[in-house]
Write a protein that binds this DNA or RNA. Sequence first.
DNA 1: CAGTGGTCTAGACCACGCC
DNA 2: GCGTGGTCTAGACCACTGA
Lengths: 233, 233
Amino acid sequence: MVEKRRHSWMEIRDSIRSMILNSTYGPGDKLPRDEEFALQFGCARSTVHRAMRDLAQSGVVERKRRGGTTVRRDPVTRATLDIPITRLEVERRGSQYRHRLLRKSVQPTPPAIMANFALSEPRDMLRVEALHLADNRPYIFEDRWICLETVPEIADVDLTRENANEWLVRNRPYSRCDLRLYARKATPSDQDVLQSHDGDALFVMERTTWIGAAPISSLCAVAHPGYQLFTQG
Amino acid sequence: MVEKRRHSWMEIRDSIRSMILNSTYGPGDKLPRDEEFALQFGCARSTVHRAMRDLAQSGVVERKRRGGTTVRRDPVTRATLDIPITRLEVERRGSQYRHRLLRKSVQPTPPAIMANFALSEPRDMLRVEALHLADNRPYIFEDRWICLETVPEIADVDLTRENANEWLVRNRPYSRCDLRLYARKATPSDQDVLQSHDGDALFVMERTTWIGAAPISSLCAVAHPGYQLFTQG
DNA sequence: CAGTGGTCTAGACCACGCC
DNA sequence: GCGTGGTCTAGACCACTGA
């Protein structure tokens, strides 16, 4: 007789994961249909679905309509990065936050920014260069391009009071965000702005956002020497 | 009369997000109960729940049993990093992958590794230093500590054939993974191993994994100059 | 075009954590 | 205790896409 207790989706997820780990199903194999598993476990199909969604999100399996569920051949380690508003990051470290607007101008997008947005033609955008400070020491320098067609209101915002980072986060949601992280040797202008030493290794975060297909903002943020980025548990 | 068409959870998610963005509900405010929203939208409570789960996961709201749903005071940009198996990363760039085991020994954990695992006492672990190569050029150097109590089988694996990275991913799932990213100036030993130049800026990824409360592995991976990490979609 | 995953519903019960 | 979110069920229909 089939057991009749309630099954949690986590138990079922773990069962399926175990079957994958002990090679009941190997990389590239097709798993049974959700309904099949539901019968096997004696639970509702939606419970299996919940479990499968979790496995798919963590990169263990791949799901396709009509194509069924397959075990991924190339497992990945998937981590979620929380990039907080810089002011909060600074304040959470117990430091005093300040912000300085260095330059603001309307310019046609250079090739690098066009590439970030996948634009074929240059456009006029608002370029904002600003420095975030912690206890009056340079923390992050940001060079940001904002698309005036998508975000016309930004032209009227006083960016010496609220920084572009916070204004955008609060007022302009994005539906897509591309991120690129790398290390770069400090240039003379970095040294000037960030008060870094010659040849310091700097951590760089480039972030480009869209709402739908419309470009919002493309940002290159250079952190002070010693900066680290963590994942949240 | 209440509209009777089906509502998708994404529509509802977007509606609620809009209400937050246009300040119907501000940072720190409590949102109506799920059931309340369900009545308002004329849909099932579970549909609201699905929408709310998404908003919670993307960092817009915070949910607590009994405590209800509140708008987060500190919106974050949340990005998912996929860190693939190094071999696949290399092969996907169209390069030939090779791997060289440099050193392998059992040693007591130094303070830095103890800190990563939050251990109070040193333990003997397997230390594996290895180099990943792309087209015979250094790609990533990794210095890895593996907990022999949690993963005793690793002692018998021939790590000159399959590298520790792949063996662990295939054989040992983790339930928790901490990640730390930063930039570091190349040391003389980096220059030797990675064939980098004096003072190059190197990208460093530290990754520590556990299964339950049991430590699995702690890894410091130093990438060749010019390495970049991207987010997926 | 048909099979599979994705979603929605209505209703029930559970469990956590403020009050 | 009790109100809120979290989960489970059974059933229905939808939508994508590969056979």
